[in-house]
Design a protein around this nucleic acid. Structure first.
Length: 570
RNA sequence: GCGCCUGUAGUUCAAUGGAUAGAACAAGGGUCUUCUAAACCUUAAAUCCAGGUUCGAUUCCUGGCAGGCGCACCA
């Protein structure tokens, strides 16, 4: 909401004689005003010293005081022109304009593809980061006005499944063993063990390697004998994934599967092979990326099966056909960066309409402090075990608490802690994961933010929700004689929210929201400890209640953009 | 070997080329008869190295060094 004011200040600077691009900054200290203009570039262009320019400009701008809303003082400070706002007017404007849910559509459609787990394999913390990031990004994009299609692309054909099925087929009395599996967790554990067995044998034994490749061909060939086992185990995985999505409070508008695109994938490869897009190499069909500064990739194996890259060509075709998006964002781990470069290049040839619309949004690698994570060896941190672990810690802290629905509240706090821990780091940065330290419950953490809301709720309960005061002072809430500096800081922070959402959507990075909310929370806590509310005089009390309600509103909607649900008390 | 990415307090992270490089955790010292101590206040602590561009570089460029990832029939 301060962008309008900024525009006016910029306009005033132009009329005062500044040329070129003008950007206003927020000074590092509150004594320096609310906005500032650094005169470096402009001064240099005119061969003047920045402080001299600042001085002259501030003199020329004195006339703007009183004409521009809220502007109280313009002053030169070294090479900067500093703008000061009137506290009372600022308070009034901000408090009357808090509407974090104000969303106008921009008419653009973006398809966001995320989560992408493979059936028959574990859902580990890497998937967890991708899912949490994708959901948050979806919400941020919606808040910025985009029409969002949430898509998930699950890998349900390919070698990893052949490995898993081979492992299962080694079990004697298979049918009765399977009957023993009652819970979904047991079934997933069963699949995980089978996969590890298959993957290990695949690498150590040439004969078994052949057997597994044969199973792979049978899966692609829809062999009826293997189909029954395939269908059943596939269903287990999907049920398991659904449970996780539900728990994470995420949903998808469309589930794409590799099994629905692999036939078309082969067609595309064979259609464009004679056109020179692909070439044969040692029986396989490849794309010669090296000719274009990329690297070669296999699109069809010697056995005649389409690879992941070929399937992505067919997937893109399907996604454009079904949704006609203006942009497709693949939220996928960073190690796929160069892979996507090649695939997008090929797509330009097989699907010209994709040009400029496909984008890989890489999120950083999640590694373990205790060593490298690998589902092949079974050394992984599973999503569910991590969630359980956090939940235990939260319940430990809440031991003495006597609030209602403790278990349910603990669940929400745990999830908030988990999501925040992944989202607070810049999206592209690697995370070194440590079970003990990574999901923090104090300091820069999810619970810290939830705590703000719980505290505000508590205060509001004790003041009758402020309804009585609102009646007493009318809609304006009766501004006090003097608006304190820290109150002003808090108000300005609140006013920055919509700008932060925009920034996060442009950068496609939810961590911008997380960082903003943390700063807001710190400022609130500082305010909370210094400025009493219940004991303040009538006018200050009404004013402060309006502030904390505004803080709550922004905090709740900001957390919602991160996919985090708030709690009434904790 | 080639390519891509990353090097900031003990640790995990911030900082459109601009005002004194900010936080959190861990460490030391304080604050609950007063709106929830999952909090607050406070002390100490950092830009990998060498050049260059610039009035100004954590940021841009070059070269080192260190780490991660990717490079053919897996996804």
């Amino acid at each position: 909401m301060l962008s309008e004011l900024k525009q006016q200040l910029i306009k005033a600077l132009y009329s005062a004689g500044v040329t070129g691009e003008i950007e206003l900054v927020v000074p590092p200290k509150s004594e320096m005003g609310e906005f500032a203009f650094g005169c470096f570039t402009f001064a240099q262009k005119n061969r003047l010293s920045p402080p001299a320019v600042a001085k002259e400009l501030s003199e020329g701008l004195q006339g703007a005081v009183g004409k521009i809303d809220m502007l109280e003082k313009v002053e030169a400070n070294g090479p900067y022109v500093n703008f000061y706002l009137n506290n009372k007017l600022l308070a009034e404007r901000v408090l009357n304009n808090i509407k974090p849910e104000n969303k106008e559509k921009n008419g653009k459609k973006v398809l966001i593809e995320f989560a992408q787990p493979n059936t028959h394999k574990a859902f580990h913390i890497g998937h967890l980061r991708g899912t949490i990031t994708g959901e948050s990004l979806s919400r941020v994009m919606e808040a910025a006005g985009y029409d969002v299609v949430r898509a998930n692309y699950q890998g349900d054909v390919g070698m990893h499944i052949a490995k898993c099925l081979w492992g299962i087929l080694q079990i004697r009395n298979l049918k009765s063993e399977i009957r023993k599996l009652s819970s979904i967790n047991e079934k997933i554990k069963f699949l995980g063990d089978a996969y590890v067995a298959g993957a290990t044998a695949f690498e150590s034994d040439e004969k078994i390697k052949k057997e597994i490749e044969e199973i792979n061909n049978r899966i692609y060939g829809r062999d009826l004998e293997i189909k029954e086992l395939y269908d059943e185990t596939r269903a287990w995985s999907l049920e398991y994934f659904d449970g996780i999505y539900k728990k994470l409070d995420t949903h998808f508008d469309r589930f794409f599967f590799e099994s629905e695109v692999y036939k078309r994938a082969s067609q595309i490869v064979n259609e464009f092979l004679p056109k020179g897009v692909f070439a044969f190499s040692e029986n396989a069909i490849i794309y010669r990326g090296e000719n274009e500064g990329l690297h070669d990739r296999v699109f069809q194996t010697g056995a005649g099966n389409p690879t992941y890259e070929a399937k992505d060509l067919a997937l893109a075709e399907l996604q454009f056909k079904e949704f006609s998006p203006d942009q497709i964002i693949h939220v996928v781990a960073r190690e796929q960066t160069e892979y996507f470069r090649v695939v997008f290049k090929v797509l330009e040839k097989t699907l010209p309409e994709s040009l400029g619309k496909e984008r890989h949004l890489p999120y950083g690698w999640v590694s373990l402090k205790s060593g490298k994570m690998s589902s092949r060896t079974g050394q992984v941190v599973l999503a569910e075990s991590l969630m359980d672990e956090i939940n235990k810690k939260v319940l430990g802290i809440m031991e003495k608490s006597e609030i209602k629905n403790k278990e349910a509240v603990a669940e929400k706090i745990s999830l908030g802690a988990l999501k925040y821990s992944f989202l607070k780091t810049g999206i592209g940065n690697d995370i070194v994961f440590d079970m003990e330290e990574s999901v923090s419950l104090s300091g820069d953490s999810g619970p810290y933010l939830l705590y703000i809301v719980a505290r505000i709720n508590s205060i509001l309960r004790k003041t009758g929700g402020g309804g009585l005061l609102a009646k007493l002072f009318g809609k304006t809430g009766g501004l006090p004689e003097k608006v304190e500096d820290r109150e002003k800081q808090l108000l300005i922070k609140l006013a920055e929210f919509d700008g932060v959402v925009l920034k996060a959507s442009e950068a496609k990075d939810p961590s911008k929201i997380a960082q903003y909310l943390f700063t807001l929370a710190q400022m609130f806590n500082n305010f909370y400890h210094i400025s009493p509310i219940l004991k303040a005089d009538k006018k200050s009390k009404a004013f402060r209640i309006r502030i904390i309600k505004a803080v709550r509103e922004v905090m709740v909607s900001g957390l919602n953009l991160l996919g985090i649900e708030t709690v009434e008390e904790m």
